[in-house]
Design a binder for these strands. Structure first.
Length: 321
DNA sequence: GAAACGTGGCT
DNA sequence: TAGCCAAGTTT
């Protein structure tokens, strides 16, 4: 199936784009052609759900409306606006790339090949920006596209699909950005990992299977218990900064970590996962430890807090959102 | 090429 | 509940 004849390819494109025109979600980054805004959206969407991105995207663009504003901002300020979204390296690299462009007095590169040279932009993101913002016919392959193509290929051919080559052969060169987004939209809303809505699929006549899509076994998870202390009077709260050299979330701020857990019962317990570790998090009230800094809660929200610290402060009603 | 990188929502 | 998973990139 994946080697479609030309006539079948145009029917495929027509069907897919027709479906997309009628069913596309109205997302904030679909209301602009500004390449910088497309760029920000693509970085935020890496391994991150649409629903989680929307509010971050709006706030981030309000704070950093263009490349120049992002390049001039402190890294800490940029990270504060990313706080809670995860994969913080993305924010550092996005800012670094903006600074590279400003330093070279360059505008945004207009081709996938040039975009690929910027930090944080890999093969997927380069093609996404080039196709959506600059109409370059560069096909995108993300998890959604892979799943759609595997299903279309059918069981016998699934293992031998060259995703990038296949997607590139299928792409609509008149509407490359819409084609790419349509493939992803289909994977995200119809061709789901589990219980795909095959009845609603505009591509079913080209589909080789409706079987489950096998994915690689995720890395084994570990579990661990950690304790944090809430210390402060009135509007103040104690925070500590993670080492700049830490592998995980370097330089970000969090509640002071307890090295020995008290015997008495914690204020509360919650669960939190960070990459491959599942934490049981216990929180006690206590005195501010040495090395911690007293910060106004209102100020704290402007720091690059870890997502877990945000969660705890929300739980204590010390933080909104 | 595998592992690391964050988080929250859904089942 | 515990596990699964999301518009990937870097090392």
């Amino acid at each position: 199936m994946l080697a479609l004849k030309n006539s079948s390819k145009s029917a495929f494109r027509r069907r897919l784009l027709g479906w997309y025109d009628a069913n596309r979600r109205n997302l904030p980054w679909r209301q602009t052609r500004d390449p910088y805004k497309i760029w920000v959206s693509e970085i935020m969407l890496q391994q991150t759900r649409v629903a989680a991105v929307i509010e971050y995207y709006k706030r981030f663009l309000k704070a950093f409306p263009n490349i120049n504003a992002l390049a001039r901002a402190d890294e800490e300020t940029v990270l504060a606006h990313w706080s809670g979204l995860g994969y913080y390296r993305r924010a550092r690299m996005l800012r670094a790339a903006a600074q590279q462009l400003e330093a070279a007095k360059r505008e945004m590169p207009r081709t996938a090949g040039e975009l690929l040279e910027l930090p944080g932009i890999g093969r997927y993101t380069a093609a996404a920006i080039a196709s959506i913002a600059f109409r370059e016919p560069a096909a995108v392959v993300d998890g959604n596209v892979e799943r759609v193509l595997v299903r279309m290929a059918g069981e016998n051919e699934a293992d031998s699909v060259d995703f990038w080559t296949t997607a590139q052969e299928l792409i609509d060169t008149d509407r490359p950005g819409d084609f790419n987004q349509a493939m992803m939209e289909l994977g995200a809303t119809v061709c789901l990992p589990k219980n795909p809505a095959c009845g609603a699929c505009p591509l079913k006549q080209w589909c080789g299977t409706r079987g489950e899509h096998k994915t690689a076994k995720p890395a084994a998870r570990k579990t661990s218990t950690v304790g944090y202390v809430v210390a402060g009077h009135g509007p103040k709260i104690a925070l500590t900064q993670r080492p700049k050299t830490a592998r995980l979330m370097p330089g970000m701020w969090e509640l002071p970590l307890l090295h020995r857990l008290p015997r008495h019962a914690p204020l509360f317990t919650l669960r939190h996962s960070v990459t491959t570790t599942d934490y049981v998090v216990k929180v006690w009230r206590g005195r501010p430890p040495k090395g911690s800094v007293q910060s106004n809660v209102a100020q704290a929200s402007k720091l690059p807090l870890t997502g877990l610290t945000r969660k705890i402060l929300r739980r204590l009603s010390l933080l909104r959102d």
